[in-house]
């Protein structure tokens, strides 16, 4: 028991001394995680859409060549960035670009570190999202595409108005996964000197060697961030699904809107508000259905 009280007092001492540093770390973690997840989604959507452009043998050779080239490029990108550790990618890009450009392209100063971190996490997320988006697009019923084509929509219109909104809904759990992974995995950006939540911990324990109490703060901190993220995503999912109920619109409103419905009692025979059929129903309710009639 006294161990616990010691831990609590250690934590409160740490927190009192380093609260601004921890909070800055949380802020930096969140900024990179949110921005990189969004950027990764954009990259993922672009790659996913490029990957699913329909190709037919009857297309002209130039178009087929370009489509094949696009697919190869996207494939290489996805495989390389999904297949290597993000720590390594960070080092590779942060030191690699200056190396190759003889220092003319370099990530200089604090801004450079920020830029490199955002870039690496975004590209990494994009590689994962590309496959998720492709899956999301494939999982939308082919009938949706046919319905859109049948009313004359082009491929781009079909994608934007029909397929992608549904694909987006389908992959929100995946986006949530990536977001939560990003919150945690931005921690590896310490290798290029980015000071986020975990790097803050490294800096602090480097001074006072209170590894365990600081780690406890980190654990609780990360857990709070990820719990808030999942809660937010659930809420977003619900909002996108819309209400389970719908309002029936009364005829009067429609008369105003359509201007073609002269009289409520003069509908078409399959209109449920058609007067003769309505009378018939009322009749049936009152005296029972006449068997011979139908």
């Amino acid at each position: 028991m006294d161990k616990f009280s010691k831990l609590i007092s250690d934590i409160s001492r740490l927190w009192a001394a380093y609260m601004p540093a921890y909070l800055t770390g949380i802020r930096n973690t969140l900024i990179v995680a949110v921005a990189a997840t969004l950027a990764g989604c954009v990259i993922g959507f672009i790659c996913g859409v490029l990957n699913t452009i329909p190709h037919a043998k009857t297309d002209n050779p130039v178009k087929r060549f370009f489509l094949a080239l696009i697919r190869v490029v996207v494939r290489v990108y996805v495989e390389v960035f999904r297949g290597t550790p993000m720590v390594l990618q960070a080092v590779f890009i942060y030191y690699g670009l200056p190396y190759f450009s003889d220092g003319s392209i370099a990530f200089r100063g604090n801004g450079g570190i920020w830029l490199a971190s955002l870039l690496v996490v975004s590209i990494n997320t994009g590689a994962y999202m590309a496959e998720s988006v492709r899956g999301g697009i494939i999982s939308v019923d082919p009938g949706q595409t046919e319905g859109a084509k049948a009313i004359g929509m082009t491929h781009v219109q079909t994608m934007i108005h029909v397929i992608l909104p549904q694909a987006l809904r389908n992959i929100i759990p995946q986006i949530g996964n990536n977001f939560i992974i990003n919150i945690k995995d931005t921690s590896v950006m310490f290798v290029i000197g980015f000071v986020e939540f975990f790097a803050t911990h490294r800096n602090i324990v480097g001074v006072n060697l209170m590894y365990f109490p600081s780690a406890a703060i980190e654990m609780v901190g990360y857990l709070c961030l990820t719990l808030a993220a999942s809660f937010l995503l659930r809420w977003l999912e619900k909002r996108l699904d819309g209400s389970d109920n719908y309002e029936l619109v009364s005829d009067d409103q429609l008369v105003m809107a359509a201007g073609t419905y002269a009289h409520p009692d003069r509908g078409t025979p399959f209109d449920e508000h058609h007067k003769p059929s309505r009378d018939e129903v009322i009749q049936e309710v009152k005296i029972g259905k006449n068997r011979g009639e139908r």
Partner: peptide, 24 residues
């Protein structure tokens, strides 16, 4: 090959067995 299929389809309506209404 040179035919604008979407343009042509906008003159020819189609109703499917499985409805294919846009779910979103």
């Amino acid at each position: 090959r040179g035919v604008n299929a979407p343009e042509y389809r906008s003159h020819v309506g189609m109703v499917f067995q499985s409805f294919n209404l846009f779910n979103n």
